[in-house]
Design a protein around this nucleic acid. Structure first.
Lengths: 110, 110
DNA sequence: TTCAAATAATCAAATATACGAATATTTATC
DNA sequence: GATAAATATTCGTATATTTGATTATTTGAA
């Protein structure tokens, strides 16, 4: 496997390795939004949202288009939504696995 | 969306945000392996591989089973392979997008 | 006991995060 | 044109976390 793909992947996953950035990407999965909208929905400082968007921009995960005083942000690739969904499935499987494990432990206690 | 899922996702993506750990996960996507096998294939120091496996273990991405003097590692969830594939698709789309952009720039030069 | 395989511990350097202040751009009003 | 408001970004700084290399320790087999 080539190094460029590996480098891309690690940078890409770094972009996703932060709660606020995940939240932003999930909002953008539902549709384009201004910084102001994102910050209102999330209830975060404007500069915090702007900074995280800057990181997402620099790793080519999102892009922004200026509209008057606002900037409208979009996912660069809709597959990001799919990726977040796979991660959710993994989480769900993880939960199921944990519950199953507890049940087995409980059963072997009796 | 609940905080536990968000926390899980960010921790999970942190686990993936490192080249060596990605490489390890890709090898494990192809089948279970000992630390020694992984280190031979990758050509890394044994302690480096072991350290990264410890991180993957701590975030419940992989698990190891002791077999004599060796430990055989497995993905905890095969969906990790799917996730890496989606990331590869995003990379490919990114490349296509970059090439298309260069072509447009080239075309508008003439 | 020795050896191989794996893991844990340690430490310094590098990188990321979090927060508030400062700055830049656009629009509307006078 | 000047000014204020709205929107967004960048900067500066302190703190936290991760990375990478090295060494020490543990475990199991012979």
């Amino acid at each position: 496997m080539n190094l460029e793909l590996q480098q891309f992947k690690s940078e890409f996953f770094k972009a996703l390795a932060h709660p606020l950035r995940i939240r932003i990407l999930e909002l953008l999965s539902e549709g384009d939004k201004t910084v102001n909208e994102i910050q209102s929905i999330i209830g975060s400082e404007g500069s915090a949202v702007s900074q995280q968007l800057a990181i997402l921009r620099s790793k080519n995960v999102v892009f922004g288009i200026k509209e008057g005083t606002s900037v409208i942000y979009s996912l660069r690739d809709p597959l990001v939504k799919d990726l977040l969904n796979v991660a959710k499935q993994i989480f769900d499987n993880h939960l199921v696995g944990t519950i199953t494990l507890l049940e087995h432990m409980r059963a072997s206690e009796q």
